[in-house]
Design a protein around this nucleic acid. Sequence first.
DNA 1: TGAACACATGAACAGTTATTCATATGTTTG
DNA 2: CAAACATATGAATAACTGTTCATGTGTTCA
Lengths: 114, 114
Amino acid sequence: MGESESLEVHQDDFAAVQQRLPDEEVLYDLAELYKIFGDTTRVKLLCILFEGEMCVQHLAQLLQVSQSAVSHQLRILKGARLVKYRRDGKTVYYTLADDHVREIIGCGMEHITE
Amino acid sequence: MGESESLEVHQDDFAAVQQRLPDEEVLYDLAELYKIFGDTTRVKLLCILFEGEMCVQHLAQLLQVSQSAVSHQLRILKGARLVKYRRDGKTVYYTLADDHVREIIGCGMEHITE
DNA sequence: TGAACACATGAACAGTTATTCATATGTTTG
DNA sequence: CAAACATATGAATAACTGTTCATGTGTTCA
C-alpha cells in the first residue's frame, strides 16, 4: 500500500521530468563538451593556457609529450572553439578562446579540492 | 630581433606557468571528473536526477537503454560520489550527491547555449 | 520456501580514442 | 632556392570504454 503510493508519486515525476529534460541534441553536445575536458593532456593544455599565451613547443615541454601529440590535441580544442591561436613567424601561439573555459575549469577544481 | 624579444618573454612565462600549474595529481583527478560527464548516458542520468529522485527502471525507460547499462553507469557515478541512493523494498532510488554536480552541469549548459 | 521482481555485476565484444611515426605545410634565413 | 625550423596531419596501433548477455544478489509475497 505504502509502496503503491510512492510508486504513483514517482510515476508523476517520471512524466514531469520527461518534459523538463533538455533536448536530446543539447545533452549530446553537453557530453561532447565535457569529453574534451576529460583527458589529462587536454586539461593540462587548458590549465596552462589559463595562465596566458604559449607556443606549441613550450606546451610540449611542459606536458612532457611529443610535439605531434600536442598538435593533435590542440586541433581538437580548436574544433571545439575552446582555444584561439595567432601565428608569429614560424611560431604559433595559443590562448583560451573565452572565459567560459575558465569557469568550467574553476567549477571542476572546486569539486576536486572540496 | 623582434622575434628574439618575444621569445624571451615567453621563456619567462614558461617558468612562471610551470610553478603556478596545479599538481599532476590534481590535473589527473580533474580530467577523471570531466570524463564522467563526457558520456551521453551519464550526462542524461545526471540531468534527470537534477530534477529529483528516481528509481533504476524509470531511469532506464527515460534513457531508452537497458537496465543493465543504467546500473553500470550508476555504478560509475556512485564511485565518483556524484550520486547517492536509498533502498525502498526491491526498488533503489538515486539522487544527486550534492550541489557541485548542479553547478558543473550548469556551467557546461551556459557554454552550449551561448 | 519458492517464485517473481528490481537491481548489480562479470565477461566479452565492438567502437572509440590518444599516441607514435612518417611526412606534409608554412616560414625564415643564408 | 635550399636548408633549417615550427607546426600540422594522415595512418596505424594499443589501450580504453560502453553496451550486451548471462547470471548473481537481495527483497517481497503467496
